[in-house]
Design a protein around this nucleic acid. Structure first.
Lengths: 260, 260
DNA sequence: TTATAATTATCATTATTTGATAATTTAATT
DNA sequence: AATTAAATTATCAAATAATGATAATTATAA
């Protein structure tokens, strides 16, 4: 265990389910002597990536809140898409959860979400949550824009139940690519239906999706064209804004570099 | 430069104002050879703490969004206080920004905020933003609960204009401690008035504040008693919930430890 | 106060980082 | 498609830092 991994392995222990650890627990989990863990933890506490809590427990530190904010204000995808989620929700024919998600390793991560105030059911899509790559429209609209080697690598990491399962998935992917958007029912959350379009920007390396999720109890077939129209138009709008932001960033860097 | 600092120094370059850097720029800024920076950056990209963007720039990675989420769902202060911010806003006599903030190093960080939808002015208090320790009611209600050595250390880090300035600050602090809450006008944002109460929990090491910020153009003296009543009652409520969460955590750890 | 747990310090050994440079890959331009 | 420049990775000996066993100290609880 060396380099950044030494720190990351500790951070990765912290989860929603288990958000505080003692040095001894960490030392057991990572099979490292506690003197080593103490030394590392001390460094991370100093850097505010961890903080000590009651009862000699440690938890994640405020540095994450700070850097998260910087991302919020600067990430082109979040900046471009965030403001449209509420509008999308307001224009949808029924209450919805609206999500901006992106590839994160071999998972999909929601980076922004807006739920209509009166939406009743619980959904898995909340900012920061990691979701499976192969289930749900949100994820599908991301993976369907990935090709060649990268797609192969990602798919090889997935555990399909059978070869047939895998082939079906690939066939669906092909169809969705042709249609330009995805619909899935209950793949992630029972009783919900999701619609999604791809969001991409080659130059910025953005592989993302915009999606609206509805309660199956409220959803009617006649809603589909409106949902589809909303998603595609807002999707294009988000991509347009990403481009503008990209140009802003470029100009900024040109300026600051020429000043020097 | 060794240990975690090596990584932190790079991360600390990234700010709202300057959210993407090339390896060469980092290498200049930190006065380190680019081969070294490349090696470090590669590690951090692999860990998703950085990600490569267009034009050989790098920016903060999605790991921060993920860990930020875990904090949101597990930090006792956020969990206990977050749900009350909207209620506080709704019960205030005029539109307001409501903030939960805590000590972060020698600064104050907002960890949750709720703005009345129709609040017009811009405020500095937004989740994740670092604020000065000695200005504004939000900060004052935090520092006023700190004593002895820790207070000395924190105050020594501040640059007061004069000794008189410093003495005035200490005098105000004493008064606020007696009163049990703080009011400041325009210290952080011109045209705004802030009210704050302390939030603390010894066992959890929480030194925080709950505050409501109003537009001076809307604020009337007769609002003060209601504001005061709201803040103190919600402040106590938040502290009560922090305590309950603390006990939940304890029980959880007892269970998991006895199972093993 | 005493006892126990938590944390820090020490230090020789072992392993890793460093930085100069070369090699390779990628992107831009002709 | 070929050329060039820029970005990134690889190499390796020297310098530096991490490790972990143990001892010492400090905080916490009984």
């Amino acid at each position: 265990m060396s380099g950044f991994l030494r720190y990351k392995k500790i951070l990765d222990l912290f989860s929603e389910e288990r958000s505080s650890w003692t040095v001894l627990e960490i030392s057991k989990a990572l099979k490292k002597p506690s003197s080593t863990i103490y030394r590392i933890i001390r460094e991370m506490v100093l850097a505010e990536f961890l903080e000590s809590a009651a009862g000699s427990y440690f938890r994640l530190g405020p540095a994450f809140i700070k850097f998260n904010r910087i991302i919020n204000f600067s990430d082109p995808l979040v900046r471009a898409g965030q403001p449209f989620l509420k509008k999308l929700a307001d224009e949808n024919p029924i209450t919805s959860v609206n999500v901006l998600a992106r590839l994160y390793g071999n998972k999909v991560m929601c980076v922004a979400d807006y739920k209509s105030p009166s939406f009743k059911k619980n959904t898995s899509y909340q900012r920061g949550k990691l979701m499976p790559l192969i289930y749900g429209a949100t994820s599908r609209a991301i993976i369907m824009q990935i090709t060649n080697r990268k797609l192969q690598d990602l798919i090889n990491l997935e555990n399909f139940k059978s070869d047939e399962d895998k082939n079906n998935f690939l066939k669906d992917l092909k169809n969705d690519r042709k249609k330009g958007y995805c619909i899935t029912e209950g793949q992630v959350d029972k009783g919900l239906i999701g619609f999604a379009v791809s969001i991409s920007n080659k130059k910025l390396g953005i592989e993302a999706s915009l999606s609206s999720i509805f309660d199956l109890d409220e959803f009617l077939l006649e809603h589909e064209p409106i949902i589809y129209a909303n998603l595609t138009s807002y999707g294009l709008l988000v991509e347009k804004y990403i481009n503008e932001i990209f140009e802003d960033i470029q100009n900024y860097h040109h300026e600051t570099n020429s000043i020097r």
